[in-house]
């Protein structure tokens, strides 16, 4: 059981919003923690050589940060039973200023019988939606 009363929820209701500052430091840290050392995530010269505008965040870092809005809401990360995203746009991370990722969660579907709520997540950087169909199913 959680503190959430499923009967009180409404589809469309916003559950929260978080702003993350992604810096080059964040990318290096994620590379080390995940083992994804693709140089497009830390070398400008390499990123440009493969036709990118610059260094971009690991999609999996964006995905991992974005779900925090649902985790914060339910209070227990173990209740995220299903989480999927589509990577629609890269998040370019400026060497000096980084990038701001704004994540918002809304209730997309309520399955009271199975006590599962679907949270639809929007993730925006530089005015672009960087994740598509980002949905987390949360066991209440």
């Amino acid at each position: 059981m959680t503190h959430i009363n499923i009967a009180s929820l409404e589809v469309g209701q916003e559950i929260g919003s978080i702003e993350f500052l992604l810096t080059r430091d964040s990318l290096v840290r994620y590379a080390g923690a995940s083992g994804d050392f693709n140089p497009i995530h830390y070398r400008d010269d390499f990123a440009k050589s493969v036709g990118l505008d610059g260094v971009l965040a690991h999609g999996m870092l964006t995905m991992g940060a974005a779900v925090q809005v649902a985790v914060d809401w339910v209070g227990d990360p173990g209740r995220i039973v299903d989480y999927g995203v589509r990577f629609t746009k890269p998040v370019f991370v400026d060497a000096k200023d980084g990038a701001v990722l704004t994540v918002t969660g809304k209730i997309g579907e309520i399955d009271a019988e199975n006590s599962i709520v679907r949270i639809d997540i929007s993730a925006v950087a530089a005015d672009l939606a960087v994740l598509g169909k980002a949905q987390a199913r949360v066991r209440i």
């Binding site: 993350f20 964040s26 840290r29 994620y30 080390g32 923690a33 995940s34 870092l61 991992g64 940060a65 925090q68 985790v71 914060d72 209070g75 227990d76 990360p77 173990g78």
Partner: peptide
């Protein structure tokens, strides 16, 4: 380490007692 890297702050990633209190 991974939780820090994805900017996760929930105590169940860091604190054994908090995780155990939730049944893990």
């Amino acid at each position: 380490e991974f939780a820090h890297a994805v900017k996760a702050s929930n105590s169940m990633h860091f604190d054994v007692l908090a995780a155990q209190a939730a049944g893990y």
